[in-house]
């Protein structure tokens, strides 16, 4: 059944895409409440964060526990470029992306020497160090007092806010672009190279894949996407403080990836929705909701360790191109 569904989605992908675009663009006109709009925005944002981390975790097999660090760098970078240098939001967002990608390059370097859990720990340390820098460098970041007065982004003179639906729409667009990018990457030679490295680095190297280069590239791309999400988050929040980016955030981003199913866009979207909706659903239980959230993580892993939507695609590999149809029928 899943195979049929995938096949249908593939056949009607252009229509689905247009439909999705319509939904995203008309979001401001739906008359949703602020709470609902914020929820949509946060789901889109976490889907984006999840997809960014997924490039490392799902595709390259490198588990990062420090993505809150990239998230924070993107947020602070974007905010500071606006507040201190007077850049426009869009320029600052791009600048923040470049900044985090550069830091991603630096953090990728240890991945050439360290493997598996050792690398995870270095990324974890990275996240903590970013927090320390944000706390300590008071003249730049405002330290523990935080950074206030971050302007809202404007588009053609119109200020994008939560209330007018502009920010959620922007979130959906950013998440969609990220999803398209990830999908394209996975269907291309670079994506195949990353998966080869994930499954067997030595065999990948013996196939002529430049393992160090692609590991670093994965870090850079992952950091770039996470940094852009961070920049966007700074615009949403309007103020920033170091406690916005604790280790728990890194864990939540990782949960987004793993709960839905690593290496897939649908998994990231599902994981993001779950992570954001659960606290809402369990709101009635007030003090117990985070405990339940932990329990749910355990249960999902216990009964579906590959992730809730982590099935192996039943639709065969497709060659890209205009004829894009299912070139070779799936077996079985």
């Amino acid at each position: 059944m899943i195979g049929r569904l995938e096949e249908l989605c593939w056949r009607w992908r252009w229509c689905l895409g247009l439909l999705w675009l319509g939904i995203a663009a008309s979001l401001p006109m739906w008359g949703l409440s602020r709470v609902q709009l914020r929820l949509i925005l946060m789901i889109a944002l976490y889907a984006m964060l999840g997809m960014g981390l997924d490039l490392l975790v799902g595709d390259t097999g490198l588990v990062s526990l420090g993505h809150a660090g990239f998230y924070a760098l993107g947020a602070y970078g974007c905010a500071l470029l606006q507040v201190r240098l007077g850049w426009s939001f869009w320029a600052a967002l791009a600048g923040a992306g470049v900044l985090t990608a550069g830091v991603g390059l630096l953090l990728g370097l240890p991945s050439l020497r360290l493997s598996g859990s050792y690398l995870s720990i270095v990324t974890l340390g990275f996240g903590e160090i970013v927090q320390m820098v944000l706390r300590t460098w008071e003249s730049l970041t405002g330290g523990n007092y935080g950074l206030r007065g971050i302007p809202r982004p404007t588009l053609f003179g119109l200020e994008l806010t939560l209330a007018n639906g502009g920010l959620p729409a922007l979130a959906l667009i950013l998440a969609t672009l990220t999803a398209l990018f990830c999908r394209r990457l996975r269907r291309s030679a670079p994506g195949r190279a990353l998966r080869a490295i994930r499954d067997d680095p030595l065999a990948a190297q013996m196939c002529g894949i430049p393992v160090p280069r692609w590991k670093i590239a994965a870090f850079v791309l992952s950091a770039l996407i996470t940094g852009l999400a961070g920049g966007f988050y700074s615009a949403v929040n309007g103020y920033l403080e170091p406690t916005n980016f604790p280790f728990n955030t890194s864990v939540v981003i990782l949960s987004v990836v793993v709960i839905g199913g690593a290496g897939t866009v649908r998994g990231a979207v599902f994981g993001a929705a779950l992570v954001q909706l659960l606290p809402q659903v369990f709101r009635g239980l007030e003090q117990w909701r985070f405990a339940l959230y932990g329990l749910l993580l355990v249960l999902v892993m216990r009964f579906r360790p590959q992730g809730v939507l982590g099935w192996r695609s039943r639709v065969s590999y497709r060659l890209p191109g205009k004829e894009g149809q299912c070139t070779y029928p799936a077996k079985g």
Partner: peptide
């Protein structure tokens, strides 16, 4: 097929 495509990366 993916294995072979990995070889032609």
């Amino acid at each position: 097929l993916e294995n072979v495509l990995a070889g032609s990366c």
